[in-house]
Design a protein around this nucleic acid. Structure first.
Lengths: 193, 193
DNA sequence: GTCTATAAAGCGATAGAC
DNA sequence: GTCTATCGCTTTATAGAC
């Protein structure tokens, strides 16, 4: 299908899309080779560890993207309320309104779960902690912030499953809109002037 | 592993557990054979359509179980509030507090999604409609009932993903307890005496 | 660094004895 | 109805030419 591969950095997103679309077990080397435009030999040159290494590096890149574009703004922004709104918007874009699946969630549900247990756990844990941090700075008590953050993780993943099961992206978009409202409801929101 | 197979009805639950644990692609005939205690020849005697038929019949049986134990009480019970509480309890038990995965959700996320699109869609649609019906009879306006029912589908699936990703069943149990409270909040609840 | 060729194992599925 | 043996194909992975 696609060609156009110059550096290693260009390969990972292409492989990621194959893993997303077919799952770890379903992503065969033939598919990965075709999508990247690289022969199997070349793939093994880049990833001597084979399919497992490809998936591990893809997960690491995903984690890096979320760290830079989602976790950090939540942790560092001086306007936590805006950071949360930004998170929702970024998630909507990233998952293409529910048409794109979360590879981390797919791996978590699949048989390869044990092989990637650590990165999968870390991804959701870091995300939840970053969101909880932003919520606390919005005026949420620590316990409430933690619960709402965990709830958000769960709503996002569930929305992806149901949107795909019903083949209806609107489900995802609506869930994100609801989530945005629910995260900050009943919060002090001491607007700094 | 297990042996003990007499009738066809005893085979499906065993196959179901293999599909749950390994996904459609990961559930090999060798695993299905080993788990059921039946040779490949015997499996093909019961399921001439092979792996696809096995999964289709497993999904049908799951649908049947939910129809009898979850959908019908929601639709028919004369105490809808109790039916909803019963649904939460049944779901907690069925998914073993998040230690067991939802095969319908797994299939929806996987590559085999297209092959089973119809039963997957129908399962969630029927469930949401049954729950919405119970909510309406609790005093929810139709639109609210529909939204809350869809929300419940999404929370259940998301809780299964996150509980498994974090390897923490408490996430699922807490989400179910929260869901129970949230479904019926701000509802007329005209207690019939 | 890329490719083709190929190895070794596993896959779904079938045939046929019992 | 159950099994073993096997087919034809695909899988992951390697070897080696260029």
């Amino acid at each position: 299908m696609a060609k156009a591969v110059a550096e290693r950095a260009d390969i990972l997103p292409v492989l990621a899309e194959v893993f997303r679309a077919h799952g770890y077990e379903g992503a065969t080397l033939a598919l990965l080779s075709e999508a990247s435009g690289l022969g199997k030999g070349s793939l093994y040159h880049f990833f001597p560890g084979g399919k497992q290494q490809m998936c591990a590096e893809v997960l690491a890149e995903i984690d890096g993207w979320f760290a830079a574009n989602i976790f950090r703004p939540l942790l560092e922004g001086d306007d936590p309320e805006a950071a949360i709104a930004g998170m929702i918007a970024a998630v909507e874009r990233y998952f293409k309104s529910g048409r794109r699946v979360c590879l981390v969630g797919v791996v978590a549900l699949g048989a390869a779960r044990d092989a990637f247990a650590e990165p999968v756990r870390a991804y959701f844990k870091r995300w939840a902690e970053a969101l909880a941090s932003a919520l606390r700075r919005c005026g949420c008590p620590a316990a409430t912030a933690r619960r709402r953050a965990e709830d958000a993780m769960l709503v996002i993943q569930g929305a992806l499953v149901i949107a795909r099961a019903l083949d209806d992206p609107k489900v995802f978009s609506r869930a994100m809109a609801d989530l945005k409202g629910r995260l900050l409801v009943d919060v002090a929101s001491t607007e700094p002037v």
